[in-house]
Write a protein that binds this DNA or RNA. Structure first.
Length: 827
RNA sequence: GCGGGCGUGGCGGAAUUGGAAGACGCGCUGGACUUAGAAUCCAGUGGCCCAAAAAGCCGUGUGGGUUCGAAUCCCACCGCCCGCACCA
């Protein structure tokens, strides 16, 4: 048993500082476009500069760093940049609360967080730092707006929009979760205001189809698919009985149209008023409409809300069979989906069924199951089946009937094939100060006039009254900002005072890193052509339908107008799990925050990094445990002591391994394990970043190394130690760099080639074969790897314990799985 | 309700994809070194049976199935997490 005699002081603070300085001085992580080398673009979602890094950031950026460092070692030219999603409400709130200017607040926070990231030893190319609130950046955010406007994809309209009374601004649909503001949780209310929108719906089909090209987590893909919510169906126009007008409906179940017994329209539908005006129904119907419209979104969206409705007194005609169909107003019909009106088929739709039961409307069966019976007293039959009572279409199967009925509608001009989407256009105006101004002016003569490109950026004025004013942006208080001249006629004009949603800023930042200093273009063609797409994008899954959808949209647009070289920006997406404490998300109010600075001070950056990787598989949530980080700290100290002890006893660190035929058993064991380690870590890197098991392999290796390094020749031990720290370098960059230097190796370990394993050392010459009888382990054999089946079966039968179980039985089958096990099946 | 994921020791988690369940770490127990502790090192650690060991039996949410062999595949059920949810 060998015990490390000496303890070496592991002064991580000094070591980490020393190397961070040297990396910076020698610019080793700075990268240039180089067509002669293969590239990798590794990107982590940039943070909002809140002022302090949290453990979620530490985990996120450590993951990215390991990947980036690994790719460097494989010989790639690696782009690994960092920046700041620097516009946003908290800066403005700080200004209101503490009287600090949002700009100062933001830049102070950035300075602190940049320091924290450097202290973590992340391999960023800081020359490429991008800050979205920098006029040199938002100039191009505004430019993108102008390009969208030019193509008719940015437009202004008066709309009922989501308003957060707490944040005092409007929100996009994606930013409303369960009827509440995604940021502060306040229930949103509807407000009718003129707002700017981006026409993301024009890209709905491509955003949907191209999901198949991406190497993304299923979960995120599914979320985007649901959000886009495409469904295939048929539009049908039902003529009104008393007017020269019609009700248009959308249905995915045109095969049930002979079963229509009423129609239901949304209370907000413009037809409602027209149908009942001046009739005895008017008063009641309008009262019902009021009642429904006064409900909050939360109430209205509630699944427990009872289906209610009211008859309008009017009828429409089913164009297929000429039947008169009563028109109702229903609270369950949504004005902003489909056409805001439905054909109701109680026999084959649960909602219509409930409604019909409640108001005693007829239930007409037009679909029966292909096999078996359906009891319509119990509920609607909503599955496909065979059509009955459907005129000439009776007897057809649902799928076939859908085609035939749609074709019929098209031929007779009262309907056609149609697709509906759940996704709405992206509302991008915000009534707040700290954002990129929308580059538009309003001229009395010329109307809406986009600011010419050569006048960008439209700069934010420094002095304004930040106090929110309701539906008016704080920018409106700045006379100097608002009052301008029209770029067309030169007459007096007013600037748009709303700013853009911060998700616009972050929808293209990955394109800026390749050319962060470009002055007359958002980015250079050769740069993005070389670097794009992002090969590895790492961040939280909470952005599934926010940032990740917006970024895909904006990139597609830039691709279409010839700027982005790729139609999808993020080839591979990795969504990491959260860091919890005591089973809950860390938060100030719960008082369960673990501070990264504190951890780095107590254990060092290497330990903190490795613990966040070791604690759990990276895609899973994990609970922060002080004992856990101590375990990793112990491991690094063990590495430090052992390798320093070796270093003390060796002079020449560059000696070749001795010839293979002279290797002792222990040397052979250590050399084999070394190859195994490289293989294991590579395997885990490739298999979805399984860094937890990669680190486990390093620990396993160290356990063996420590046991036998004194019993092997120095060159063998040095080979093992060098390989080990080379493999560990992407995970713990400082301690490995220090040990590398102490082994007199050329700077820097992080630019040294990744070690290679040799297959032949992965297989041992002797293997342990398990011997089973009827599937139960009864013995083991250590045998030569190349042993024949006959031989091993013979040996197996001689094991006393196996013999015991074979005695008096008849062997019906003998199984030998090469290198693994023998199984005797006996009776 | 629909869709997706998961369920393994006291805990976090392994199991190279159908072949020794529990790697690695934490925790715990015993020991060495120490006046003592911390640190470090060594040994042990799924349960049952046993004074102990060997041998044996049980064991991957539950019940069934396929297979020589199942944590892994199939069916049913239970529980947890995530997403969607009157979408016509």
């Amino acid at each position: 048993m060998t015990i490390v005699a000496k303890q070496y002081e592991y002064n991580f603070t000094e070591i980490e500082k020393k190397w961070q300085q040297k990396w910076e001085d020698t610019h080793i992580y700075e990268v240039e476009r180089d067509e002669s080398k293969p590239k990798k673009y590794v990107l982590e979602m940039f943070p909002y500069p809140s002022g302090r890094l949290h453990m979620g950031h530490v985990r996120n950026y450590t993951l990215g760093d390991v990947v980036a460092r690994y790719y460097w070692r494989l010989g790639y030219n690696v782009l690994h940049p960092m920046g700041w999603d620097a516009f946003g409400l908290p800066a403005e709130n700080a200004a209101i609360k503490h009287g600090i200017h949002p700009k100062k607040w933001t830049y102070d926070n950035i300075a602190n967080m940049r320091k924290q990231l450097k202290r973590m030893g992340i391999s960023y190319d800081w020359n490429r730092e991008v800050t979205t609130c920098d006029p040199e950046y938002y100039k191009w955010t505004q430019w993108i707006f102008l390009k969208l406007y030019e193509k008719g994809l940015a437009y202004k309209k008066k709309a009922k929009v989501n308003w957060c009374p707490n944040c005092k601004t409007v929100l996009a649909n994606e930013q409303v979760v369960d009827g509440k503001c995604y940021r502060c949780g306040t229930p949103v209310v509807k407000k009718e205001i003129e707002q700017w929108f981006f026409k993301i719906t024009a890209y709905a089909d491509r955003l949907l189809e191209d999901l198949d090209k991406l190497d993304w987590p299923e979960r995120v893909v599914v979320q985007q698919k649901n959000w886009i919510g495409k469904s295939k169906g048929t539009k049908v126009r039902f003529k009104l009985e008393d007017f020269d007008d019609y009700v248009e409906i959308f249905t995915t179940r045109i095969d049930t149209i002979y079963g229509v017994t009423f129609m239901a329209i949304a209370p907000e539908h413009p037809l409602v008023e027209k149908l009942v005006r001046g009739t005895p129904y008017e008063e009641e119907v309008m009262a019902f409409k009021e009642k429904v419209m006064n409900m909050s979104d939360i109430e209205r969206m509630s699944t427990t809300l009872e289906r209610e409705g009211i008859f309008t007194g009017k009828y429409a005609i089913n164009p297929y069979n000429g039947e008169r169909v009563p028109i109702w107003v229903g609270n369950y019909v949504l004005v902003d989906y489909g056409t805001g009106a439905i054909m109701a088929v109680p026999a084959h739709d649960e909602r219509d069924y409930d409604f019909a039961k409640k108001y005693n409307l007829p239930i007409k069966v037009v679909i029966v199951p292909e096999e078996g019976e359906w009891d319509f007293d119990k509920g609607a039959y909503t599955e496909p089946g065979i059509l009955v009572n459907s005129g000439p279409f009776s007897g057809m199967k649902s799928e076939e009937a859908k085609e035939a009925l749609t074709k019929y509608a098209e031929e007779h001009g009262f309907g056609e094939r149609s697709y509906m989407y759940r996704i709405r256009d992206w509302l991008i105006s915000r009534q707040r100060y700290w954002g990129a101004p929308i580059p538009v002016v309003y001229c009395e003569k010329c109307g809406i006039v986009p600011v010419p490109e050569d006048q960008l950026p439209v700069k934010l004025p420094e002095v304004v009254d930040f106090e929110p004013k309701g539906a008016i942006s704080p920018l409106a208080t700045s006379k100097e900002f608002v009052e301008t001249t029209c770029p067309i006629c030169g007459g007096p004009a007013r600037r748009e005072t709303d700013t853009m949603d911060t998700f616009v800023d972050s929808s293209w930042y990955y394109l800026r890193y390749p050319s962060p200093h470009s002055e007359d273009k958002p980015f250079e063609e050769e740069d993005v052509k070389y670097w794009m797409p992002v090969d590895e994008y790492i961040g939280g899954a909470e952005h599934a339908v926010l940032h990740l959808l917006y970024a895909r949209f904006i990139n597609k647009f830039l691709y279409d107008i010839g700027y982005s070289p790729v139609d999808e920006p993020f080839q591979h997406l990795f969504t990491q799990g959260m860091v919890l404490k005591d089973g809950a998300k860390m938060s100030k109010s719960l008082g369960n925050i673990v501070d990264p600075d504190e951890m780095m001070q107590k254990y060092g950056a290497d330990t903190t990094r490795m613990y966040t990787l070791f604690a759990a598989p990276p895609e899973r949530d994990f609970d922060w445990k002080e004992e856990g980080i101590e375990g990793v700290f112990r491991f690094l100290k063990r590495v430090w002591n052992t390798i320093n002890d070796l270093i003390d006893s060796v002079d020449d660190f560059d000696k070749e391994l001795p010839p293979e035929d002279t290797w002792t058993d222990k040397e052979k064991e250590l050399i084999r394990k070394t190859h195994w380690l490289i293989y294991r870590v590579e395997y885990d890197m490739k298999d979805n970043f399984r860094f937890n098991t990669a680190i486990a392999a390093m620990m396993e290796y160290m356990n063996l190394f420590q046991k036998i390094y004194k019993d092997v020749r120095p060159e063998v031990a040095v080979f093992g130690a060098k390989t080990f720290i080379q493999v560990m370098a992407p995970f713990a960059p400082h301690i490995t760099e220090e040990l590398w230097e102490r082994m007199k190796q050329p700077y820097s370990i992080h630019m040294s080639p990744w070690p290679k394993y040799d297959e032949k050392y992965l297989k041992a010459d002797t293997i342990t074969v398990v011997v089973q009888v009827n599937g139960k382990v009864r013995g083991k054999l250590d045998v030569d790897a190349e042993i024949s089946k006959d031989e091993i079966l013979k040996l197996a039968k001689e094991i006393p314990n196996v013999k015991k179980f074979l005695e008096g039985k008849q062997i019906v089958k003998e199984i030998y799985v090469k290198g693994k096990l023998v199984n005797f099946v006996v009776k």
